[in-house]
């Protein structure tokens, strides 16, 4: 195992995060604050709670994941896309690194950044709502699984992309709409049929509900199913990354 190599990539990526630390952290804090002002104070005060949970607290897990999905994808995709763009990918391809080692460096760094941002959002949320996490350890593990899965997804996206605009397409046109429609701000039970059933085909709904379960011990679908879908998504992304490295798709000519 080339531990020095993994560490080199990890440090490099974290150094990039460090160079933009204030904008990286200020953006989610400001966005979260705005969501709480709109959905918590303005609209949320007019809404009744969900299963005994205040609306302000109910939206915290969805709000965290909304940012975490895009941050994990963005950081991992940019991490591998930039060497392709600048030409420094030659060094990575000629280094004594296995695909797993390369992925550990990039995905590990992207997941770390997302975890830091998630904790900042979590701390910001505490300023606005009274929040008690029912299963803190499970919450952290689930968050780690989600950030790693979306970082893997972002890694594939970064290899696929041929331009900066392509890096934005999937997060903007697919992930964000699925997150909004996956119950980030509402319970699936409030949806009329057939929309509730349709929503059950949205995999993001399971990720949000699973994460919400770790907070409140209750969710719209069973926690076991949520974990199974999340693990399935992670396995799919991992398989895609392994295939990319085995075939050299968009990496080697």
């Amino acid at each position: 195992m080339n531990l020095h190599g993994i560490w080199a990539i990890y440090r490099f990526e974290m150094a990039r995060f460090g160079r933009t630390i204030w904008t990286s952290l200020a953006t989610p804090v400001i966005t979260t604050t705005l969501y709480f002002i709109v959905f918590g104070a303005a609209i949320g005060s007019q809404m009744r709670g969900v299963d005994g949970i205040s609306y302000g607290a109910f939206i915290v897990p969805g709000l965290m994941l909304l940012t975490i999905f895009s941050e994990s994808i963005f950081n991992a995709s940019l991490g591998i896309y930039m060497p392709k763009f600048t030409g420094t990918i030659y060094e990575l391809l000629s280094a004594p690194l296995s695909p797993i080692e390369t992925v550990l460096g990039y995905v590990g760094a992207a997941a770390t950044k997302s975890m830091v941002i998630a904790m900042v959002i979590f701390a910001t949320a505490h300023l606005f709502v009274d929040l008690h996490v029912a299963h803190p350890l499970l919450m952290l593990l689930y968050l780690l699984l989600v950030t790693a899965s979306f970082a893997l997804f972002g890694f594939c996206l970064g290899i696929w992309a041929n331009g900066f605009e392509q890096l934005q397409i999937i997060p903007l046109l697919v992930v964000t709409p699925l997150t909004f429609l996956g119950g980030a701000f509402y319970s699936l039970d409030v949806l009329p049929e057939p929309w509730r059933t349709v929503t059950l085909f949205n995999p993001v709904a399971y990720l949000i509900n699973g994460f919400r379960w770790t907070f409140f011990g209750q969710s719209d679908v069973s926690f076991a199913l949520c974990v199974a879908v999340t693990l399935g998504f992670a396995a799919l992304c991992l398989a895609a990354v392994v295939t990319i490295f085995r075939t050299g798709w968009r990496l080697k000519s």
Partner: peptide, 14 residues
Amino acid sequence: ATVTFSRRLFGRSG
């Protein structure tokens, strides 16, 4: 930093 990065990438201590 970039030279140290290269050394580490190839499996050596920085």
